[in-house]
Design a protein around this nucleic acid. Structure first.
Length: 440
RNA sequence: GUGGUUGUAGCUCAGUUGGUUAGAGCAUCGGUUUGUGGUACCGAGGGUCGUCGGUUCGAGACCGAUCUUCCACCCCA
């Protein structure tokens, strides 16, 4: 720990066997749900070209992208001209959505649309680490691209409900809003260009209160009259009142209609955890329609989020292809499950059987028997060294291996091992056949 | 990016107003038990006190810088 270089970089961690097994449990659960909806897996590189990522996430996002340093002569020149940062040609991916858009455009002729994919990979953000906030973390993305249908949004709410039900977290809620509504609000108060500023400020309403939100809006250059018009929303933000508010805005009304459809259709399919949240804004620039955020009452930040992006592929040269998707935050879900003690007892499979090693000849017999057991699908290990019995027993005990097989002269002569049940301590002499029957 | 916070054996922590060879519990390894684990008893190894520099006769304790941890903001999974 004290030695130089003996730790992982800020905001990253190692995973011990139990932690890794529990993470796999989360990945497997999520993947299982994605599979049942007919999504196909893809992968993309850890690095993208810097220009692929820059400018897609908004000011804040751009700042948090990890850039890869130029090397050799290029670096030398960049240092001379004081342009090190701009000389970066590659960067670690910041999310999975933008690389996916690039992927779709690049492989458009090899894909059939609408295209449904999932992607479970790490992403990197140069954020200040905190609880539930890491610099390297896994996102589990599902997206469908090439379809405008609201059926897709509805399917996403079903997927979210399925995943969290399976993980034992049915008390989550899916906060839903629609960027079109936010755009409508901006239009109605006469500040259509300030959409982002307005939504970001509105987002803080329940945290910092009305006065501070108004102050923030003012500093963003929004006029007093416009702020005054917003007043109604500060007091009553039910779906009906917002609908009335944006009645004069075509796009706003469209948003209201979409939102109502998604919530109503989801409910018909048994997904009753959706709720309209007019203050949900989301800072990522590329969202244009529905936006989602999943929260849990016992966790401070969102554990899943996403939305519809009408023109993300347009930036890469493919017009009129709309996509929608959400991303599950595996690391936050891990923290939450750990906190609530919700991991199943037996996650991660240890061997069912271990052969104690008595020496070269005995081990040779063990290898033969181990081969038979493995062929029968029984997880088997042979202790590699002829260490002291006590040490080998302790190893089996530490790994909670339920059966230990003793193979010495007596057993080789009898042609069957002594089987010790580690739970009860009972021992018996069993043939391979009997053992396989007992374990299957 | 802003403000604050933490850092002593693998882990959780003691360490009195700066003073000789830095401690405990757990874990690890060994022994009591050379074909038997989880209990018990005995013993051992392991730390240049995050790092670099400074003050001092003397620093784990004081000062500075840096890295790391955690927290609030920002933003987000």
């Amino acid at each position: 720990m004290a030695k130089a270089g003996l730790n992982t970089p800020k905001g990253t961690r190692d995973f011990l066997p139990q932690q890794a097994a529990r993470r796999n449990y989360i990945f497997d659960t999520i993947r299982g749900v994605f599979d049942t909806y007919g999504f196909a897996p893809i992968e993309t590189p850890a690095m993208e070209l810097t220009e692929t990522l820059m400018g897609k996430y908004g000011e804040e996002g751009d700042r948090l992208i990890f850039k890869v340093l130029a090397r050799g002569e290029k670096l030398k020149k960049a240092v001379e001209h004081n342009r090190v940062e701009k000389s970066s040609e590659e960067a670690l991916r910041y999310d999975l959505t933008v690389p996916f858009a690039r992927f779709v455009v690049q492989h458009q002729n090899e894909l059939s649309f609408p295209f449904k994919r999932y992607q479970i990979q790490p992403v990197w953000r140069a954020d200040r680490p905190q609880k539930g906030r890491y610099r390297e973390f896994y996102q589990c993305d599902v997206d469908m691209i090439g379809s405008n249908s609201l059926l897709n949004e509805v399917e996403l709410t079903q997927i979210i409900a399925d995943v969290f039900t399976k993980l034992g977290l049915p008390e989550v809620s899916i906060k839903i809003n629609n960027r079109k509504i936010l755009q409508g609000i901006a239009e109605v108060i006469g500040e259509p260009d300030k959409l982002i500023d307005i939504t970001v400020a509105l987002d803080k309403l329940d945290k910092i209160g009305r006065e501070k939100v108004e102050a923030e809006l003012a500093t963003k250059g929004i006029g007093k009259e416009a702020i005054a018009k917003l007043g109604v929303l500060f007091e009553n933000v039910s779906l009906d009142s917002v609908a009335k508010f944006v009645a004069s805005s075509e796009i706003g009304l469209k948003g209201i209609e979409e939102l109502k459809t998604v919530i109503a259709s989801s409910e018909k399919l048994g997904v009753s955890i959706c709720e309209f949240d007019p203050t949900l804004a989301r800072g990522l620039n590329y969202y244009t329609g529905a936006i989602f955020e999943v929260t849990h009452p016992d966790f401070p930040s969102s554990i899943c989020g996403g939305g519809r992006y009408d023109d993300l592929t347009g930036i890469f040269g493919l017009k009129d292809v709309s996509g929608v998707g959400v991303s599950f935050g595996a690391d936050r879900i891990y923290d939450l499950l750990l906190d609530k003690n919700l991991f199943p007892e037996q996650v991660g499979l240890s061997a069912q059987v271990m052969f104690v090693n008595f020496g070269e000849n005995e081990a040779a017999q063990c290898q033969l028997w181990a081969k038979e057991l493995r062929a029968a699908g029984i997880r088997t290990e042979v202790y590699p060294d002829s260490a002291k019995m006590k040490k080998q027993m302790k190893y089996a005990n530490d790994k909670s291996i339920p059966y230990v097989l003793l193979v010495g002269d007596r057993e080789i002569e009898a042609q069957q091992p002594t089987v010790k049940n580690m739970l009860t301590g009972d021992q018996s002499s069993l043939s391979m056949k009997e053992l396989i029957n007992e374990l299957n």
